[in-house]
Every structure is written in C-alpha cells, then in structure tokens.
Amino acid sequence: MEKILSVENLKVIFNTYAGTVQAVSDVSFTLDKGEIIGIVGESGCGKSVTSSAIMRLIPSPPGQISGGRIIFDGKDLVSLDEKALQSIRGNQISMIFQDPIVSLNPVLTVGLQLAESFMLHQKLPKKLALEKAVELLKLVGIPAPEERIHQYPHQMSGGMRQRVMIAMALALRPRILIADEPTTALDVTVQAQIMELIKKLNTELSTAVILITHDLGVVAGMCSRVLVMYAGKIVESAPARELYNSPQHPYTWGLLKSVPRPDKQKAALSSIPGQPPDLLAPPSGCAFMPRCQFAMEICKQPPKETVGSENHSCRCWLVDPASPYSPGTLFKEGEA
C-alpha cells in the first residue's frame, strides 16, 4: 500500500500558568492511501490535539509542536510556512469537527460557505461555485439541495449540519479526511447515517480517513486499523479485528470490558478504577500504572514499544520480550 501520511515522534506541549502540559508525546503512525484508521481514547488523551497538529491548527501560544515530523507528500508539515499550509488545508487534507453548529458560520448561508472553498482554491466565479455547492449537497444526501443552499445553519437539524460539514470537507476531493468525533453530538440513528456516508465516500473517492472517537463500537465497524491513546501516547495499535479479539494492553482490555455488548447476555460490567492522570505532572513510568491491576515494579520505568505479529504494537511491560507473563492468559484469569 502507498503511504500518504506519516507522523513521526510527534510531541505537542501547551504552556499554561500551571506549567507545561505534555498533551501529545512521541506519537508515530502512518496512513495508507484509501485506508480508514481509528484513534480511540478518553477525553484529554491527546487524540484531538494529534489531529489538530496534522492540520497545523494548534493555537500558538499556548500550544507548540515541540518535536517530531509530519510527512505528507514528501513535505514536513511541521516546518511549512502559513502560505504553503493554506494550499494544503482543505485542499489536500481536510477536517470535520465534532460540533457542527459551532463550526459553521451562523450569518452566512450554507451555499456560500460551501462555495467559498471553490472560489478560494479554484478561483471559480460565484455562480459556478454555487452550482458546485448544489452538487456537493446532493452527494452527501441532502434532499432539495437547490433550496437548502439558501438556508442558514440554524434552519437545519444536527444531522443535516454534519452532512454540510462533510460536504465542505470533501469539496476539493482531499486525499485525507480527518473526522474528529463526527457523531458525538448526534443520535444513534443519525450516527449510523453519517458513518454510512463516510464509508461510501471513502470507497467512491478513495479518500483516506482518520476517525477520532471515544466510542469503541463506532470504530469496530469502520476502521481497518485502530490506535488506542492514553495520556498523550499511543499505547496499542493493531488491525481492528486483532485488537478487539486479543487486546494486549491492560487499558484496551479494560475499555473493552467496560462497554456493555447489546448483542450479548447481560454480564457484570467491570470498570477501570481511578481516573486518567494529570498531564501537568504525568507519572514518570507507565502512565496507566496507577490504574493497572497488573502493575509491577518495573512499570515505574517507561515501557518500550513492542511490535508483535500482525503489526500489533503495544507499549506495556507485560509484552516486553523479557516479560515472564503473557497478557492473554492474565486477562483470561482476570475475567474469571
């Protein structure tokens, strides 16, 4: 497969009055052409900061990309100037945000907001650009697009607004689409519609998608590969089936156990005790250690990344080649 994006050892920090927050530390992954990957994690784990960093949308100050490279098309996005970035943003890489009502301009009609990207990037006259806007709305399945382009965002429902956002993101046929919690604000039935749409556009336009979410269920149906983030680091990454069938990291295992399965009989719900760490003063070793039921003495040192079969990589001392344990058997005992 052809690689189109590779993130290498990305570090993002935020300088606040209380001290330096290490929002993302040492994150590396690659994205192939036409692939859908998922980034999962709880709030504050750095998943949204990672995606904003790819778009170079980290507000600075207080934020700062303090290390690493983001290679797209042979260019390092971290060192590009604003002008060069503008020709990539929206055109080559575009993004859908969580809350469509905040991300759309309330005083402009939907049509104008859609036409703007054609007028800016392709220098089309307004009339032609509006015609293209109608086509886009048709593509994302909005009924009566000719009338809808004259409406304002408040005249639409949440699902419809998110479709407009998707239309906007896809306007220039970008090669990468970053969807940052695209359905968190929506109902399950609308969520199903939107996910179906993203999948359809992925196959038809072969756009690569980075799907960021906290919902393990959404990722399961969509992604070929899943990255699990915790406290600013990728703790586990593997092909979707592999990750769900045999999680290696205790955090992933805990997450999977704390979601009830609607298709299975009721079983006791196990929870992960404690809460995510404070990133102002992260634990020196493994960040998950205080909540981990398998914590050992060595966990006070930061674990290295171990890559196993099927490209299943995990950052945990349990899977270290020198470890006497195997997570699979430990987890089975933990379930019993």
């Binding site: 009924p143 699902g159 039935t189 269920g217 149906g221 769900y244 298709d263």
Partner: peptide, 27 residues
Amino acid sequence: KALLSAIPIADPAAEAKRQRIILTGDV
C-alpha cells in the same frame, strides 16, 4: 428495530455480519 440496528457494537466480526436499517430523513 431501526434504533437497535444502529447501535455500534465493539466487535469488528459482529459488525461485519449485521444488517443495518438506516432510517431516512429527520424527526
């Protein structure tokens, strides 16, 4: 039926098998 078929399940194998009923339109 539509509501239940829209719940995402945290298991790729189960997700691949199921039939979704996608409701059209808005409430």
